[in-house]
Design a protein around this nucleic acid. Structure first.
Ligand SMILES: [Mn+2]
Ligand SMILES: [Mn+2]
Ligand SMILES: [Zn+2]
Ligand SMILES: [Zn+2]
Lengths: 153, 153
DNA sequence: ATTGGCAGTGACAATCATTCTCAATTCTTT
DNA sequence: AAAGAATTGAGAATGATTGTCACTGCCAAT
């Protein structure tokens, strides 16, 4: 229950079928807390569904991105990573802290109010000034995480 | 004059040599207003310096990134793109507007004061809370640019 | 000025995520 | 059941990036 089920209707309304691969790929994304790559998903599924091929994973992810059911990220490790979008998953909108040493990624959602207000204000200003319809934003901070700091003697 | 020349000393201090490819690659980046890929740079150089190979471009870019003389970006078109970093180029720190239709990228530098203050404040808060040394941030807004909006009837 | 060592280089091969192709399978609708 | 469309998987192809290796040029010590 809740909106996290509506992706099915959304697909069907556009004439797409509900298939096992689509079901299971979304399920994997829902049950994961991290940012999965196509291959991560493939390996996770392969245990229970050895028939599902990597090509299908890629195709499905592409479709889901296009339908805005999931979001595609590029964290600089040369492979795309995916998250359920806020609307269809349980995760709240968040920003990222990326460790440039170990590539670990911390999601943070505990914005202060000013932060949200300012982003909104900035988006409005930019839309007007550049005649640009903003649909989403990505904010990430890069640096060195605690563990990596310790490691470097 | 100005700090934009100090990259030479920076390289030499670390024992790296000043070579033609390094000189020219930085020159190309300096003279460009857009975000160049390795191949963009290669093609630009190839006219005047046909002897410089693509491999060298990649190697040099990697070195320059590591020395923080340039910055590597991932805009989602599956190739890395590079900019002189604020310290060594003339470009001011900026954020990005990315058109998801035509992949055009607008740099904007006209922050409002609140924007800069809030980023600083947020960085401080995150560093403390997550024990994370933040060295840089990337902020980009994705959407549809004016031209693309017109095109879609 | 030679020599030895090592940074720097370019051609080419290898890698690896992603996309393409195509024949086979499954749904949906008659 | 049959037609037509959507979906699929295997394997080939693609394309950006990285690795290899023999070669070149620079510099310091002789
Ligand atoms: Mn995330
Ligand atoms: Mn830029
Ligand atoms: Zn780390
Ligand atoms: Zn556009």
């Amino acid at each position: 229950m809740g909106k996290h089920c509506q992706w099915r209707e959304r697909l069907q309304k556009k004439g797409y079928r509900l298939t096992i691969p689509r079901e299971v790929i979304i399920e994997v994304l829902r049950n994961s807390t991290s940012h999965l790559s196509a291959e991560d998903i493939y390996m996770e599924l392969h245990k229970k569904y050895p028939a599902i091929g990597l090509t299908t994973i890629y195709r499905t992810l592409e479709l889901l991105v296009q339908m805005k059911i999931i979001v595609k990220f590029d964290f600089g490790d040369r492979r795309s990573r995916y998250e359920l979008s806020e609307k269809y998953g349980m995760k709240k909108h968040h920003h990222h802290l990326i460790c440039s040493q170990c590539t670990k990624i911390i999601d943070y959602t505990d914005f202060i109010n000013e932060e949200l207000e300012l982003i909104e204000k900035t988006e409005k200003r930019l839309m007007k000034k550049y005649n640009f319809s903003i649909t989403s934003h990505v904010i990430s901070f890069t640096g060195i995480c605690l563990e990596c700091k310790k490691d470097q003697t």
